[in-house]
Write a protein that binds this DNA or RNA. Structure first.
Lengths: 201, 201
DNA sequence: GTCTATAACCGGATAGAC
DNA sequence: GTCTATCCGGTTATAGAC
């Protein structure tokens, strides 16, 4: 938390903030410059174009996303362990970086293919996870469920509260930010319980 | 499906398409004009500014969203009936208008307060739904669960498959569009089963 | 109501001094 | 590396003929 970061870092941080908030189209180089406490020209000096700056931010944000995903699946867990650990850690990640879902959704809209390509480039192994689920069902440890549905279920339960934050706070929780905080703190346990009840025989 | 609609309708339809696809910032008046088969000047003649046109589209899309929501809760169902009917109809709505979630999320980002205000203006009664859930838990028909969590769970399970369509298709389903269609067709049953298992004792 | 032409504006990008 | 000033293309918006 040192105040004297170098200019490039200041730019990246400011750009991250603005691009996440406004998306590529809505973001303004002027606002990024203001946010970083410099002027527009310097932005171009460091990153040449708005697009190049955006690409930089995109790759940074994307790295965050798979940080946990990879970790969770890499370490040869049982399905039961995976379930608890994945939900706990993924929600923890989103608490630290709540802007991630919004940013990704924005990009899904703009350039779907880019997101898919990036995902294919990670170490995350889809097959391994599918197999884990199918094995658990075969062993009668969980009720049978198509892996795609289970995975999307889990992801949706983790992600939605962050995407819909303003709606949940404003509409369901009377605009009370403390209530939202509590809600999010309860989430890991609530999701784990919900999924376990839904699955285990 | 008559071909000769009046100009205003043509504009609205074209604007809907473009705004949904590109968002307010990304949309271009020229593209809307082209899509409607008229010229830019006429756009301004009917709606004065881009912003006013967008507001019009926004309110139209928003009406769609609550179409089902209101219906489902209005008609004094038991919790069990509500559950099945809501999930079935909400996913059916999203199949008809899959652009809704993206559009709303875009707006959550841009102007959170607008969304919340709009929601408060609907006939949808939050309290009634909360009470329904709490009553079911009290009667031991379902296991106890905080209503906010249950509602967000259900919504997330319905919405996510549409928001994440490109990712699900491209990454989990090998880019096979037919598989996505099948996946979506299976969804209502999968979600209902999942939620029921998670809830009912 | 609808068009063509153009004004007014905005925002990304560059030139050039320091 | 950092700044001020400026350019230039694209986009919204308006004027005015038909």
């Amino acid at each position: 938390m040192v105040k004297k970061q170098n200019t490039e870092d200041k730019i990246v941080e400011a750009a991250k903030k603005v691009f996440i908030q406004k998306g590529m189209d809505g973001a303004r180089m002027q606002q990024i410059a203001d946010e970083a406490g410099i002027n527009k020209a310097l932005l171009h000096y460091y990153f040449r174009t708005k697009n190049k700056l955006f690409e930089k931010i995109f790759s940074l944000v994307f790295r965050d996303i798979f940080e946990v995903l990879e970790m969770a699946v890499m370490k040869e867990l049982s399905f039961e362990q995976f379930l608890e650990q994945f939900i706990t850690e993924y929600i923890a990640l989103l608490k630290r970086k709540p802007y991630i879902p919004q940013f990704v959704i924005h990009e899904i809209n703009r350039k779907p293919q880019r997101i898919v390509d990036q995902m294919k480039n990670t170490k995350f192994d889809k097959q391994q996870l599918f197999a884990l689920i199918e094995q658990a069902a075969e062993d009668k440890r969980i009720r049978p469920i198509p892996p795609v549905h289970l995975i999307t279920n889990i992801l949706s339960l983790c992600l939605f509260p962050f995407v819909a934050k303003p709606i949940i706070t404003g509409f369901a929780l009377d605009g009370d930010k403390e209530k939202y905080k509590t809600y999010i703190d309860e989430r890991p346990e609530q999701v784990i319980t919900f999924v376990k009840q839904a699955l285990f025989l």
